[in-house]
Write a protein that binds this DNA or RNA. Structure first.
Lengths: 153, 153
DNA sequence: GACTATTGCCTTAGTTCTAAGATTCTTTAT
DNA sequence: ATAAAGAATCTTAGAACTAAGGCAATAGTC
């Protein structure tokens, strides 16, 4: 029957997806570690560089980290003097996070290096293959994300 | 120049790869959590089911967990009575991990459900598309894995 | 036979996640 | 208007995982 064959395909795809993700993540992690940053820390700085000050919740959704995790990461970046929290005038629950001067200086040197590292790590495929792969992955990810929770199975 | 365009492609691919991975992982995590398992715990049980007793180091490499992590996970599974450690006759440092009877019973019900969950989560692409995607990801991942550490940049 | 390097597992410190809680804002009903 | 319920935002506490280092056993070299 075709049912088990399809499941095998899904299972295998899950494995190679995990391994590819892990391998590339390792490159990224090593690179940012050279600047004494973890990946979530880098993600926060990068998001702030490109989007300006953000609320903690916005940051959280952007860098795919848990709500408790974002508090911890921002605490640490604040202790290093790279970002600062600011009150939100409209909502006293919420708080903005913004880069400090030294935070800007750091991320502006780390980010281009990061892009270069990823580029080098992904040279196993050519540019057009990468675009095509990206399309398929977007389809896959969007479908899966929409389906979350609706696993009546 | 084409350099920054290529970096953009790599950066975008990294983003969609991460999001797709995360979305599917969420499905998998929810499913095994219904049986009070974490993903690494499930990974250990599944590896033992299909390969028989394994050394801790073999398990570690198979499920992509840290060396401290495998000790922790096996401790917990042992406490739940799902696996047991056995001495290795040839090497007194090493130890086998094997499923217990109740471990076998559990994983034999959880695994097929797991395959089904992944299949459903990945229906955004057809079976042949999945195979093609898998090929590309394998190329990407293998290349990146081989390049690890050689980031003289 | 010692000396060094390697391998296998464990331990500890630190990072991240999940779940629950505290505070503020919003909505709805009275 | 007021109050009460519900939702959103952030933090805290405890479990899960990683990375780095440590000890013990094995293997290789002289």
């Amino acid at each position: 029957m075709g049912k088990s064959r399809r499941r095998d395909a899904a299972l295998k795809l899950w494995i190679v997806l995990s391994r590819a993700h892990r391998a590339i993540e390792d490159h990224a992690r090593l690179q940012v570690a050279r600047h004494d940053l973890t990946l979530p820390e880098f993600g926060v700085l990068e998001a702030l560089l490109h989007k300006g000050p953000l609320l903690l919740g916005e940051l959280q959704r952007k860098i795919l980290v848990s709500s408790g995790g974002i508090t911890y990461v921002v605490d640490r970046l604040e202790a290093k003097g790279l970002v600062e929290r600011r009150p939100c005038p409209d909502d006293r629950r919420a708080r903005f996070v913004a880069l400090t001067v030294s935070g800007i200086r750091l991320i502006e040197t780390v980010f281009p290096e990061h892009a270069e590292t990823l580029d080098l790590a992904m040279r196993g495929l050519g540019e057009s293959e990468q675009r095509a792969l990206g399309e398929k992955l977007r389809t896959l990810g969007t479908y899966a994300a929409e389906r979350i929770g609706s696993e009546a199975d």
